[in-house]
Design a protein around this nucleic acid. Structure first.
Length: 450
RNA sequence: GGCGGCGUGGCCGAGUGGCUUAGGCAAGGGCCUGCAAAGCCCUGUACAGCGGUUCGAUUCCGCUCGCCGCCUCCA
């Protein structure tokens, strides 16, 4: 049984599924108003690994992750580019899924869109107004934080101390009664896209969509709700507040992943403008190196990404590939059960991927050192762990090598056979100059791409 | 100001009250190899500082220092 840190309880607790054998989880997805950055890369890979691990462990996982396709940032972008907001959202969503594919992130089971759930949201907001948890302010409908006992659970702060820290906003949100209240429905200006509502045409506030979509697709009391640590408060706090105020049971477990920080240790954030483009990183490096980096850091801790860390990860990936080539025949074998159990034990301890990864490398070394029949099971375990449980494919087979190159390799073997090492070395130098990696094994020269 | 987290060897990053092994990258030495590459083996006076508890603390407690996050859009 996997034990996971619960943000609400501030403790590692067993992740008991609502229904045995099944697992329902909701991950707060992107607002499609720009290019994916490193933070997006981390969270999608982290929860992709988590999901794969659960599935690998035999659970039937329902994984829901939303796409916020109506939001102020999208409107701003649309205005700047003088195109319809929907077109902007569609453009960046396409880019989003394309990037996910490159990252090896599996599609969620469901990807609900905010715009498809507006009616549901209006219903929920109406319910909250009726129950006295929401009120109509000048420019929208607001949720009254003080109306819900226990508001502040995820912030770990009382309403009073939240009040003390809250900033008083100017302009937007002018209709709030209290600074800690949050907007549910924003009344639209004439030029903005809008949906009808009892309070006038407008659009939903950000915090409502996730409540409605998670409850609709996963049902009350679903197993896990996750997102970035920066979403714990206010976003998740506010989701929870709405669900409870509406009389619904919400998630059973809250988990939050840590932020990506730059090499100076500072969080990459939109307002600081220090986010790095994920696309550029993927153009430069093997996406598997990024996944390895994600695995290497604890999901709750800050993760540093930079040139140096990526290069080091790249070398590790090469090492894995080298292993895969050497043990290609073990791929189909039965994994050593004890090895898998050891891996599972580490993963089950609060999803400790760095620790589990260390264990996997121990296995790898062990398999090489043993080098007899026992090694097959160990090697098979390595494949099983990296490829199926962690979603990191190992490249064993040398990719399409041109015949002309193979002919040169054969010529080199001939030269070596004849102990004409001068000629053999010359051929190797040529091949290397052409960008090939040349390695000698018992069966002769092996050629592969770098 | 309120709340929370972190500080481990050159770097990243696990872990534990003593039974001296995490792991990765880098470095040095060795083996293998015609030479390389790949691989294997070995090596490195680590646990921010100061007190306390203890027979014994990197691990528990307290304090100090430093860094970071949330309280504002954010993954």
């Amino acid at each position: 049984m996997l034990r996971l840190y619960d943000t609400a309880l501030e403790d590692v607790t067993p992740l008991e599924p609502r229904r045995a054998g099944e697992f329902s989880m909701y991950v707060c997805g992107p607002t499609v108003s720009g290019e994916p950055h490193l933070g997006h890369g981390r969270f999608t890979v982290v929860w992709d690994i988590f999901r794969r691990y659960l599935e690998w462990s035999g659970l039937d996982v329902r994984f829901v992750s939303n796409v916020t396709d109506i939001e102020d940032k999208i409107l701003a972008k649309a205005a700047a580019e003088r195109r319809p907001p929907a077109e902007v959202a569609a453009h960046y969503e396409k880019l989003w899924w394309h990037t996910m594919e490159r990252l090896g992130v599996a599609r969620p089971s469901e990807t609900p869109h905010a715009t498809a759930y507006v009616e549901h949201m209006v219903e929920l907001i109406g319910e909250l107004v009726e129950r006295g948890h929401a009120y109509v302010g000048g420019d929208g409908v607001y949720f009254s934080a003080e109306s819900l006992p226990g508001y502040g659970l995820l912030a770990h702060q009382s309403l009073e101390s939240l009040r003390a820290g809250a900033r008083v906003e100017a302009g937007e949100g002018a209709g709030k009664r209290a600074p800690v209240d949050f907007v549910l429905w924003k009344l639209a200006r004439p030029d903005e896209p809008s949906w009808p509502s009892p309070w006038g045409p407008g659009r939903p506030g950000w915090h409502t969509e996730c409540v409605v979509m998670s409850l609709d697709l996963l049902g009350e009391d679903f197993d896990l709700h996750t997102g970035g640590l920066d979403l714990a408060f206010p976003h998740h706090e506010n989701e929870r507040a709405q669900a409870l105020a509406a009389g619904r049971r919400f998630t059973r477990h809250w988990a939050h992943h840590g932020m990506v920080v730059d090499e100076g240790g500072e969080k990459m954030s939109k307002s600081l403008g220090n986010t790095l483009s994920l696309l550029e990183l993927l153009d430069t490096y093997d996406p598997r190196a990024f996944r390895l980096l994600v695995l290497r850091s604890n999901y709750r801790r800050p993760m540093t990404v930079g040139f140096e860390t990526m290069s080091a990860a790249m070398r590790t990936v090469e090492r894995l590939d080298s292993f895969a080539r050497e043990f290609a025949s073990a791929r189909a074998a039965d994994p050593d059960p004890a090895a898998l159990a050891r891996f599972r034990q580490r993963m089950d301890d609060d999803f400790d991927t760095p620790n589990a990864l260390g264990g996997a490398f121990e296995l790898l070394r062990e398999a090489r050192a043993v080098a007899d029949k026992d090694a097959v099971g160990l090697a098979a375990a390595v494949f099983d762990i990296f490829e199926r449980a962690l979603g990191l494919p190992l490249q064993g087979a040398p990719a399409d090598i041109p015949d002309e190159v193979l002919a040169r390799a054969a010529a080199r073997d001939q030269a070596r056979g004849a102990k004409d090492f001068g000629r053999a070395d010359a051929i190797r130098a040529e091949l290397q100059a052409d960008g090939w990696v040349v390695e000698d094994g018992p069966e002769g020269t092996t050629i592969r791409r770098p």
